[in-house]
Amino acid sequence: MSATPPRPVPAERWEHFPHVADMGVRGFGSTLDEAFAAAAHAMTAVITDPDAVRPEIRVEIHAQAADPEILLYDFLNGLVYEMAVNGLLFSRFRVRSEGDRLLAEAWGEKTDVARHQPCVEVKGATFTQLDVRREDDGRWLAQCVLDI
């Protein structure tokens, strides 16, 4: 794990997709790890503008699950927990997974209501439309609907 934050996720690597009550997040990448990082970026974008979140504080997220979809569920919910308990927002993500284990670092800062104008609290990442797969073009996709 490094002492400097990774670069931000480029705009073309993440998106939101609609769910009538809530919001879906989707990340893409050339590896599963990149797609996970992009999905995490998309989750921050549900709450605030990720570009406005300074990468000053680093936290680690550990997860373990045989199923890569459960691994995504655990990773995003690990971030939800850190945001809720420590009042943080994250803008940079470095994900390393190997087999059934994931070790990620997320960089961010304490929520500043005036500056970040956070619009919703994510209650949790759900199993709804939870999907991790390698697409035909070789690109990885990681997605799920968030309960907000």
């Binding site: 459960i70 919910n77 809720a84 308990v85 209650k123 949790g124 309960d147």
Partner: peptide, 12 residues
């Protein structure tokens, strides 16, 4: 948060 966390854990 308490209810959200219970939901997250038991759903899994």
């Amino acid at each position: 948060g308490l209810g959200h966390q219970i939901g997250t854990e038991f759903l899994r």
